[in-house]
Amino acid sequence: MAGLSREEVAKVARLARIALDDAELERFTDQLAQVLEHAADLEALDLAGVAPTAHPHGLANVLRDDEVRESLPRAEVLAQAPDVAEERFAVPRIIGEAP
């Protein structure tokens, strides 16, 4: 694991939709690099053939029946919204379509 670069941190910040000024970029790069350096002990391990664990317990097939439950009152839903128009959540213009 090579050292973390400022460019990589800047890219990650863009992906996470967080803006960083130059000083923050510098500071976060140092701090994240430290944490990743600590994580270098993982890289040294030979874990080929070890199955990953995404869940602590191996549960499977937990399902619910296809039965309608009451939805929330719309007024309550929209009351929390920063901006509403025509009973919908309003946002500034969207640049670019969904992938």
């Binding site: 996470a16 939709r17 803006a19 929390q80 920063p82 901006d83 959540f89 500034p92 213009r93 640049i95």
Partner: peptide, 22 residues
């Protein structure tokens, strides 16, 4: 910033997302 909690306005939705989260 779309559905609840803080919103910091921006010229477009991505800028609004970034401003809100920042």
């Amino acid at each position: 910033g779309v559905r609840y909690g803080l919103r910091v306005e921006g010229p477009d939705v991505e800028a609004m997302n970034v401003a809100t989260r920042t």
